[in-house]
């Protein structure tokens, strides 16, 4: 499977999915015109990775604003990770937010609510 490497735009986050390192990094705002077009390759990538790589998967997130369809897509990704975790695979996530914007941290908590795999939420200075 190829790596994914999408640059950040004003309405889409940067997405970097590295197969050999087992890391997915996302950074920025997400309110794309077509969220399926943006997220489906990533959802497929995560699914393929969890099914075949046999290595841990780590998500590094610095997402700020997500529109509703982006929220849905992120929940799909977390659900896949949760299912893999329950089968014994090593998965983890870390969500960074700007310490001046506590609300982003609170919303990340909402995503973490249904996840039993390691999921840390940390503030960081600008």
């Amino acid at each position: 499977m190829n790596n994914l490497n999408l640059s950040q735009t004003s309405s889409t986050p940067s997405i970097l999915a590295d197969w050999s390192k087992g890391i997915v990094q996302m950074k920025g705002d997400s309110y794309p015109e077509n969220s399926f077009e943006l997220f489906q390759p990533l959802i497929d990538w995560v699914q393929a990775y969890l099914a075949t790589a046999g290595q841990p998967l780590h998500l590094d997130l610095e997402l700020v604003y997500l529109n509703t369809s982006s929220i849905r897509s992120m929940m799909d990704i977390f659900e896949q990770m949760e299912a893999a975790h329950k089968k014994g695979q090593m998965v983890s996530a870390r969500w960074f937010y700007d310490f001046a914007n506590e609300r982003v941290g609170q919303l990340a908590e909402e995503f973490r609510e249904d996840c039993t795999f390691p999921f840390t939420i940390s503030s960081k200075p600008r």
């Binding site: 604003y65 997500l66 509703t68 929940m75 609300r103 609170q106």
Partner: peptide, 14 residues
């Protein structure tokens, strides 16, 4: 319900 709750949170943040 969860998607709506999170989405409401983001709208309120905006």
């Amino acid at each position: 319900e969860k998607i709506v709750r999170i989405s409401d949170g983001y709208q309120s943040m905006l």
